[in-house]
Simulated assay, not measured.
Amino acid sequence: MPFQPLLRGAAVRGLAALLLIAAPLAAAAQSAYPDKPVRIMVGASAGGGTDILARLLADKFAVALKQPVVVENRPGASNTIAAELTARAANDGSTLLLATNTGQAVAPHLLKLKYDPLKDLQPVGLVAVMPNVLVVPQASPYQSVGELVAAMRAKPGAFRYASSGIGSTQHVGGEAFALATGTKAIHVPYRGSSQAHIDIIGGQVEMMFDSTSSAMQQIKAGKLRPLAVAAAKRTPELPDVPTLAESGVTGADVNTWYGLFVTAGTPRAAVERLNVELTQSLRMADVQERIKALGGEITPMDIATFAEMNRSEFERYGKLVRDTGMRAE
């Protein structure tokens, strides 16, 4: 049947023509991202460090992506409410999550989650790393870590430390400090750092291991007194504040990192676009100045490097949770 080869040839030519038409259409579809407004989910209340960074990025992304970008605060459950909403969102890149190691690396080892933070959230890039700082109210009688530890040892269980929630890095910092110093304190969780600050300043809670991004404003306003930075070196924004190691406490350094995630299954082209825009935003002078003022360091990462960091931090904090005996009270 001589017509069969002809038909096959025509089919091949037709398929080739369709592919030629489809290729630019697919490219156009990819380049059209985003084709609707974008929201950045934040697992903490307004005014905290995560919220500050999210709004900073939202302003830059709105210009770069040519779409409205809004910040949606969903505080509670150690940042996991916002994370779950992102994990369950449409995987079209319209829902982003500005997460911290609280929700990504600590809380999963303490709380029963309805999503998998490693499988249901796609890493985009690292935003910033902030050291945690031990703060007390300005009216506190304690001027140093040594004085605070001595008082805690004299009255076991009489001191309270605040956190932005169960499983937060503030919670980890408090437990690591107690383990390292042989002291005991009562954990008082809040729905965000800004709410915790109210009670610390008012004297209802004695101390907190907060991120510099959240605490810096109150420190500069003279409402919180920093006793030590929980990092290997002093932060340039608090040059006169010693590290915990300099204060005689080792093994209690805990930082807070902030990273951008998107719903798993989001097209690779959209994820790569977001990583590019994030990297470019972090290179802007005003963004760098703002993050530096919060005591943070910027280390842009490609997608693969940040994904590996996210996984290794999940494992590292899992061990820390087990070592400190932390529980979801």
Rank of each mutant, 00 (worst) to 15 (best):
L7V: 14
G9T: 14
G14F: 08
A17L: 12
I21N: 00
A28G: 06
A32P: 04
A32Y: 07
A46L: 04
A54Y: 06
F61L: 15
A62V: 01
A77I: 06
A82Y: 04
T86R: 09
A87C: 05
A89N: 07
D92K: 08
T95R: 05
L97I: 12
A99Y: 02
L113M: 13
Y115S: 05
K119R: 15
V124I: 15
L126D: 03
Q143V: 12
G146K: 07
G146N: 12
L148A: 05
L148K: 05
L148S: 01
V149W: 01
A150E: 12
A151I: 06
A154C: 03
G157A: 09
G157M: 01
F159E: 14
R160M: 13
H171L: 09
F177T: 04
F177P: 01
V188F: 09
G192C: 02
A196L: 06
V205N: 08
A215D: 13
I219E: 08
I219D: 00
K220N: 14
G222I: 01
L227K: 08
A230H: 06
K233V: 13
K233N: 11
T243K: 09
V249P: 00
D253S: 10
N255D: 15
L260C: 14
T263N: 05
A264Y: 01
P267T: 08
E272L: 15
L278I: 02
L282N: 03
E289K: 15
G295A: 05
E308G: 01
F314N: 10
F314K: 15
R316L: 12
R316M: 10
L320I: 13
G325L: 05
A328D: 11
E329V: 11
